[in-house]
């Protein structure tokens, strides 16, 4: 039995800000078509890991390959152009730019107008609310709408792997449900997802596998079902 080559293959990933080591040599694999979740308490190094993967945080790694290619020395803009992108924590939309402008910039890697218009039409079909708000400034959107905009903006680059950092943060429960329904929907369309989430039950419900980060190290890795069943994990690491 051979495993297919992973889409994202990371080993010995370390992230340090000056003297502070946020992530201390973790190994991580994400296979095409999977939803993998990264769990852990505040400050465990989850966001640092995602930021490092796209090149926004200072990183070192024994191996950092995406789609079979070494990306350890690529800038964020080049990594995004190769098909891995991040929906950052806190959404980080541009408040004074319109929804349409976000989609335009998100799709900047499509040099031709054809694919750009096509992808935009796809996004507006996926997020009808954004169509209504197309010429509104993003700062005037509700939190849930901003989160959808942040996802749509990232999807405009037609990624193969989407990194999602705390998509439920600060959102009302029914909005969170909508976002998670959307994540399943995206997977059904063939997108591979690496999800960081505070809401452990929700994350494990949707994921195939998970990793638990504690103080910058992976303490447990396993299928979502095993992680869910493990009372020890819940008590010791997740505080649920």
């Amino acid at each position: 039995m051979t495993n297919p080559a992973p889409l994202l293959d990371v080993s010995g990933l370390t992230v340090s800000y000056g003297a502070v080591e946020a992530v201390r040599g973790i190994d991580l694999k994400v296979t095409k078509g999977e939803i993998v979740t990264l769990l852990g308490a505040n400050g465990a190094g989850k966001s640092s890991t995602l930021n490092a993967l796209v090149g926004l945080a200072p990183r070192r790694a024994r191996q950092l390959s995406f789609a079979g290619e070494d990306i350890a020395h690529l800038t964020p803009e080049l990594i995004v152009r190769r098909g891995m992108t991040l929906v950052p924590e806190g959404r980080r939309i541009f408040p004074t730019l319109t929804v349409a402008e976000h989609l335009l910039l998100g799709g900047a890697k499509h040099a031709a107008r054809g694919p750009l218009a096509e992808t935009q039409a796809e996004m507006l079909a996926l997020f009808p609310i954004l169509k209504e708000r197309l010429h509104q400034k993003a700062g005037s959107l509700s939190g849930g709408e901003q989160q959808m905009l942040a996802v749509a903006r990232a999807l405009m680059s037609s990624p193969d792997l989407l990194l999602l950092d705390e998509p439920s943060l600060g959102l009302a429960p029914q909005v969170v449900d909508r976002i998670f329904a959307l994540i399943s929907d995206l997977r059904a369309r063939g997108l591979t997802i690496l999800l960081v989430e505070q809401n452990v039950a929700l994350a494990l419900d949707i994921a195939d596998r998970g990793y638990v980060l504690v103080n910058g190290r992976i303490e447990i890795a396993g299928s979502a079902r095993d992680l869910m069943a493990s009372a020890a994990i819940r008590d010791a690491y997740l505080g649920a």
């Binding site: 800038t75 964020p76 995004v80 950052p88 980080r92 541009f94 730019l97 900047a108 890697k109």
Partner: peptide, 13 residues
């Protein structure tokens, strides 16, 4: 507004 995020659009910093 947010320089880092512009790089995530694939636009060269």
């Amino acid at each position: 507004e947010d320089f880092a995020i512009v790089r995530l659009m694939g636009l060269r910093a």
